[in-house]
Nucleic acid binder design. Sequence first.
DNA 1: GCCGTTTTCGGCCCGACTGTTTTCAGTCG
Length: 608
Amino acid sequence: MDDPESPPLSNGELARIFHEIGDMLEVKGELVFKTVAYHRAADAIAHSPVEVARAYRAGDPPRIAGVGEAIARKIEELARTGHLAFYEHLREEVPPSLVALLGIPGVGPRTVKQLHDELGVETLDDLRRAAEAGTLRGLRGMSEKTEEQVLAGIATLENRKDRMRLGQAEEIVETLLAELAETPGLRSIQPAGSFRRRRETIGDLDLLAETDRPLELVGRFVGLPTVESIIARGPHKAAVRLLRGPQVDLMVMPPDEAGTYLIHFTGSKEHNVRLRGMARDRGWSLSEKGYLRLGDDGEPATGDAADLRVFPTEAEAYGFLGLPFIEPELREDRGEIEAAVAGQLPRLVARTDLRGDCHSHSDWSDGVHAIEQMAESARRRGYAYLVLTDHTVSLAIARGLDLERVERQRRIVAALNERFAREEAAGTAPPETAPEGFRLLHGCELEVRADATLDYPDELLATYDLVVGSVHVARRQSREQLTARTLAAIRSPHVDVIAHPAGRYIGSREDLDLDWDTVYEEAARTGTALELNGSDERLDLSDVRARRAAELGCVFAIDSDAHRTEELDNLRWGTAMARRAWLGPDRIVNTRSRAELIDWTAGKPGRV
DNA sequence: GCCGTTTTCGGCCCGACTGTTTTCAGTCG
């Protein structure tokens, strides 16, 4: 029965259902291509810029690659009723506890089916008991050793850490690279995988090395003090789990053949599948080893090495398919192949394009470091400006500033800027100082109250260099209320940037329930920038949302939201998200000079 | 189940490692 009153399922919820269907079909032993089709469709829905269920309910189903007639019918049913009979029947047949067994490393769908059919295993505990009782060894292809592996796999699953934040991944990678750097024979070593693509969270880490002495490198790698266990170890490849840390894969490549290796191990899997398809169309088989010419039978030729093509760089390896180099952040099969074929890849914004930072805090509100420390730190990073945006009065928990403290803070900012100007004139500023000089701009992080009013009066807001507006409180309001509050900030002539528009914390706090397209359209119409918040706990807007916003004409600010000096470097993660959203420097307001930025903020009433 | 400037049927990406195997299936990335 239709239930138009209930909120439509989110893309994430739809994707989870179709992934689960794919998993259940795998366990049932269904044709593998069918299960893959469900997973592909689930991924496409998860990354869709439009709210799929809402669009179906409105009678305007979007065209989604990988969603054909059968899956479209299922989305339709889910969108209209919130239920899917096919899914519910499947869950009775293949209980979720059985699907959960797929999470055990080393246990795949065939094994789960075998365990269920032959031993009646339905849950993790069933399997644990069976392995401990030694009843697995009687099954075809299983032994005592299998039982040990299953038990170890269950332990791993139960201890499995959540995916890492980018900053955590970076720290581990840098430690590993330092520990392996002095290995004899090593020519180069670098991270690949989702960390190189800068996905918002990282599961496993991948390292790629060129070395003349593979055995020595692999040996040192598996012997590192932080290695808890060795998962696999071959002559050119090894996988380990770190103590209280992630799995790390090391791959050794022959010197001067890195091109296809880097592509293969950087991924994404979906990007690689597309490349292999292109290679196949041209009569070549692509693997990490290079391009191998296909014979008349459609199989790669064996024997003579004459038909293997290898390349020292990724650019050359892409070039073999007639493609330009594709930036790692774009390699998600979200249109980058088509753009590359058409010669229309975007020029992505780079960290060095940024001239300043529009969102930062001091110990006047909830930051750690003093105003002067924050300013000095930004100056020594070569910025032309840092906007100090401490919280406003109603956010008492963060010591929001009342009017009297705003005035005192303003005098401190002015005094600092006088000193900076004097030093620049006298030539005594730090050598890292930007050519245009450095100034601390005065702003605030303006609270949008629960009733959609702004925390400071217009007369006060008009005195700031730049204002970022934020929704922090009353997050559980209705979609209409939350959207109205965000729009109130966007429509204010004094609000220049909407800070962390979705208000999420990765892994712990969901996005605000907003009418997103309306928010994007209004931001575009008024010229209000949306923030790409660089805190690796936020990364807000997400890459998917930012790309949609850009399609609708929005501009953005890449901000650190630093609460201490070290966090100023959060700009690198904000930049990564901008790149994953296909954004160029022209869309980012803080690629502008200080004078241009100030002109832009002063022009807002005229932009409306 | 999806998809089509070679197909509306017949394909659908590739290889290393593991374990139990005597030639290969399963899992993983």
